[in-house]
């Protein structure tokens, strides 16, 4: 079997098409395992995994934890609040202390871009990036693209628009890399203040009119407005944002075609997406969550499965 060309999953940027396809094949196997009456299997028995979260997370942490448990790994959880980080310990010291307890893999989330890369240079375990600031969130992008593949049968040639706060979004960047590696066409759409200045240089289309964007696309991945990352105001009000960029049923009905609706969660209902759209048949939001566990199992299995 071919193996991943990397020892760590730091970002989609480090993966090529072959790697992603290998992960998807393995994901399909694990998805089947997750539909069995007994979902646990012993493939990562005796592997110890530390989930190190320096930033809040519900979904990603739960999903990783569940994936690790389904694979029979031993896990320890660490979150920065209430820990020695508050006493002034440096990042490397914290992580080295955790590793001194003989940990094989580290799943890490941090609010600063590049932290997993720094760790990968300094320590021996496999590192999986579970989100580093506004940089990358590779497992989210893998599960998003896998969900498109799973639902529609292919990713190549699909037109995907990513809507919303592109500037602060690690999901957007990872998704752009993943979709482009699989030869999909990508567009970003949002208020000009939330689009990075030179985003076009990544080879994506840029659009500020949501109707035009939706008319162009097959799949719309709608991002959350991240209020916690906005020290300054990028748009006048949430109400105005939802007027101009919110996805609602009338807008979709007026398009004369069906679009697959995705959202990485958590949803701000009534802001970037209305409830009737989020809960409609075109939405695969909950399938994304389901696939998330299988994708993470595949990544853990492929990175750990080497002696």
């Amino acid at each position: 079997m071919s193996r991943l060309k990397t020892k760590h999953l730091l970002g989609i940027k480090n993966l090529d098409r072959e790697d992603i396809e290998l992960i998807f094949q393995t994901t399909a196997n694990f998805k089947e395992v997750l539909n069995r009456p007994i979902k646990k299997n012993p493939s990562l028995r005796d592997v110890t995994i530390a989930n190190v979260f320096f930033e809040n997370s519900t979904r990603t942490k739960l999903s990783f934890e569940l994936a690790e448990k389904r694979l029979s790994a031993d896990i320890i959880n660490f979150s920065a609040s209430g820990s020695s980080v508050e006493k002034g310990e440096t990042l490397l010291d914290t992580v080295n202390n955790i590793l001194a307890m003989k940990v094989d893999m580290v799943v890490m989330r941090h609010s600063s871009p590049g932290v997993p890369h720094l760790l990968a240079k300094n320590i021996n375990s496999n590192i999986i990036n579970a989100g580093d600031g506004t940089h990358e969130h590779p497992t989210q992008a893998l599960l998003d693209t896998f969900s498109i593949l799973d639902k529609t049968g292919r990713v190549e040639g699909k037109r995907v628009v990513i809507v919303g706060d592109i500037l602060h979004s690690r999901v957007a960047l990872s998704n752009i890399f993943a979709l482009q590696a699989l030869q999909a066409e990508v567009m970003v759409c949002g208020p000009p203040t939330l689009l990075p200045k030179h985003i076009g240089e990544l080879g994506v289309e840029v659009e500020t009119d949501i109707r035009k964007a939706l008319e162009w696309c097959d799949v719309a991945n709608i991002l959350r407005i991240q209020l916690e990352r906005q020290q300054m105001r990028y748009f006048p009000s949430l109400r105005e944002y939802s007027q101009y960029f919110g996805i609602n049923k009338q807008l979709l009905d007026s398009l004369n075609k069906e679009i697959l609706i995705m959202h990485p969660g958590p949803i701000n209902r009534g802001v970037e997406i209305t409830s009737d759209v989020a809960d409609s048949d075109h939405s695969i939001i909950l399938e994304q969550v389901e696939n998330g566990v299988a994708v993470r199992m595949a990544v853990l299995y492929l990175l750990a499965g080497i002696g």
């Binding site: 079997m1 071919s2 005796d46 299995y301 499965g305 002696g307």
Partner: peptide
Amino acid sequence: LRRRNEPIA
């Protein structure tokens, strides 16, 4: 599983 050079397909 973890005694080989490659993951098993």
